[in-house]
Nucleic acid binder design. Structure first.
Lengths: 236, 236
DNA sequence: CGGGCAGTTTGCGATAGCGCAAAAAAGCAC
DNA sequence: GTGCTTTTTTGCGCTATCGCAAACTGCCCG
């Protein structure tokens, strides 16, 4: 088990309010594990035995229906926690987590949680905020799915990804991990065909440049306009 | 400010782990307020100054888009908390709460929260579980909106309402508060017209009996079948 | 270097559900 | 009871989006 440099994680929201000199005490209980691209970290329905903090890479959390359809719950960016089943009182993971890129993850056993939050109450408070924020994001997503058309939802999804995991380029923003049309469809509640058509359209207008599991927003500002325009509005 | 009988709330999930004899100390900080039907309790975007526990009645939490469209986030049943903006670190209420029935609500000032959770850590843990459960429900809702057709989503919504706030009848279950077609549309991401058509259809098959803001599930079991059947399946 | 596979594009017909409009019904106020 | 408001019902055309099928492309593997 490699030792993790406290200075690398001290600034994370999870540890805000924890004194840097105490951080080692928290990290000591975790182990660091590397997952290669496409490796499963945990499966939906499995006993929740650990909780996680992503250090490097990107992780996709997805939920599967009994009939096998999937939705992407979210993409986890470095510095974010995931698999918090223990904290929210779930005995099993409600989703599947998989590394979409080579990733490094800190893993705590659930058994460490009660002790940690007793010793560092800020951890509990920070986690509460995180979960609360995710709840609000979920509600926003439901609102969008209820009131917007597919093109707007795709625009929003890409903008969020760009915001969370965008790599700035000379001209545009590239989403910094492999993501397919299918993935975007599963984030927005549509089909990969429809996503492909939309991106093709945007590409021919120069708004994006994209290829196999790769998307660059060339005109983020114009995509913002797309995302916000009302169902009928605009294109005369 | 009327005194609240501790025995009435002692069994609520919120207070699990709090000793009954300590409960009075928690309740002392709250005031009890009655809201008549259709009264607003708080508005989306307003400064979050309090958090709430519903004692009697029913409350509708709804989110509004900039363009005025609404979705119902959830219906609050007696014994449930709502308006937890403080706990999740939000400065403003992310939704509007309104009494759909004459309701009685316990109200704590946000300023009491830090003290309460310090004194009774179980409150924080219970709230975390509650928020976590709501997050999971949100994800389930997103999954349904992504993968199911409207009729199935309406079936699921009604079954949940029946489960949460159903009054058992000789033959069937009645949803125990006024709810319109529009409300159901806003819970399922469709239009009141479509909901009306669906309920009309069900009514003619004897599955439900409904009227103005009133729905009785006459054949809950058959509605379960509807909710679960695959898009194509069944009706020959 | 030649498959072969996973991911993408595109055409085309089908349709679920929307949106508008108008009428019917159910409460409620006076 | 009468009139008014709110909610519900229903008809009808429209279209955004799906679903299937097929072709295309860039890549990884051997």
């Amino acid at each position: 088990m490699a030792k993790v440099d406290t200075s690398l994680v001290a600034h994370l929201p999870l540890f805000s309010g924890v004194k840097p000199e105490d951080l080692d005490e928290v990290l000591r209980e975790a182990r660091s594990v590397r997952y290669p691209r496409n490796a499963a970290i945990f499966e939906q329905g499995a006993d929740a035995q650990s909780f996680f903090l992503l250090l490097h890479g990107h992780v996709r959390a997805a939920k599967t229906t009994p009939t096998g359809e999937q939705i992407v719950v979210r993409y986890v960016a470095p510095g974010e926690t995931f698999g918090l089943a223990m904290a929210i009182g779930a005995a099993h993971y409600p989703a599947t987590a998989m590394a979409v890129d080579d990733s490094v993850v800190l893993i705590w056993p659930n058994s460490a949680w009660p002790r940690l939050i007793e010793r560092f109450p800020a951890l509990a408070a920070n986690t509460m905020q995180t979960v609360g924020k995710r709840l609000q994001e979920s509600h926003t997503r439901i609102l969008e799915m209820s009131t917007q058309q597919v093109e707007q939802r795709v625009a929003h999804a890409l903008l969020r990804l760009a915001n969370q995991s965008g790599k700035k380029l000379d001209h545009g923003i590239e989403i910094d991990f492999p993501i397919s049309r299918q993935d975007i469809a599963q984030m927005t509640g549509t089909t990969l065909h429809t996503v492909s058509r939309i991106l093709s359209g945007w590409e021919s207008q120069g708004l994006v440049e994209s290829g196999r599991q790769r998307i660059i927003l060339r005109e983020p500002h114009k995509i913002v306009v797309l995302a916000e325009r009302s169902p009928d509005g605009g294109a005369a």
